[in-house]
């Protein structure tokens, strides 16, 4: 499978400096962008478009922590099983349900402070989880062991997106 890190000349690691990725992305993008090939032949224009698409996809994948982790795991033959693995630890699911209940209440009360506190707690939890994922993947090289943590992060991301939606509806 294609290695998105190689495209940007980066070492495959979960702990990734955003600026380094950004710089590499801009640099490649400026070389392959269709604007540069406006006067070129058909074949070159097509190639430029294909490269741009590929570079954008790689950038989007690496920029997002869940997708980046998923990509690293896949490079090592580990499936994160977002679709089929439903057996998350019971306490984690209980906590997720409570957080969603709190979100429902806060948006029902049109309570921006409630949403804010929910979001602050969630962001803190995401940071801790991302550190654990970096530990598992980069230090321990335990890719299978990281899969459960990545699935947890996916839940937290979804909750984050739901908080965004709740802000929109109460505004």
């Amino acid at each position: 499978m294609t290695n998105h890190f190689e495209l940007f000349g980066l070492a495959p690691a979960f702990a990734l400096e955003a600026e380094g990725l950004e710089r590499a992305y801009r640099e490649i993008q400026s070389r392959v962008h269709p604007d540069r090939f406006a006067r070129a032949g058909d074949a070159e224009r097509r190639a430029s478009l294909q490269w741009t698409t590929r570079v954008n996809e790689a950038y989007r994948t690496l920029r997002n922590p869940v997708q980046r982790a998923k990509h690293i795991l896949e490079l090592h033959g580990v499936d994160v099983a977002f679709e089929t693995n439903t057996a998350m630890p019971a306490e984690f699911l209980m906590q997720q349900m409570e957080l969603r209940e709190r979100l429902e209440e806060a948006s029902g009360r049109r309570d921006p402070k409630g949403l804010e506190s929910l979001r602050a707690g969630l962001r803190a939890e995401k940071r801790v989880l991302e550190e654990s994922i970096a530990d598992r993947i980069d230090a321990a090289k335990d890719y299978a062991g990281a899969a459960g943590l990545v699935r947890k992060l996916m839940f937290l991301d979804k909750l984050d997106a739901e908080i965004d939606l709740a802000y929109e509806t109460i505004e």
């Binding site: 099983a81 693995n85 439903t86 699911l93 349900m97 947890k152 979804k158 909750l159």
Partner: peptide, 13 residues
């Protein structure tokens, strides 16, 4: 029974 689907963040009891 508590289960969850990471793909969509669904939680079901």
């Amino acid at each position: 029974g508590m289960v969850g689907a990471p793909a969509c963040g669904d939680v079901m009891k």
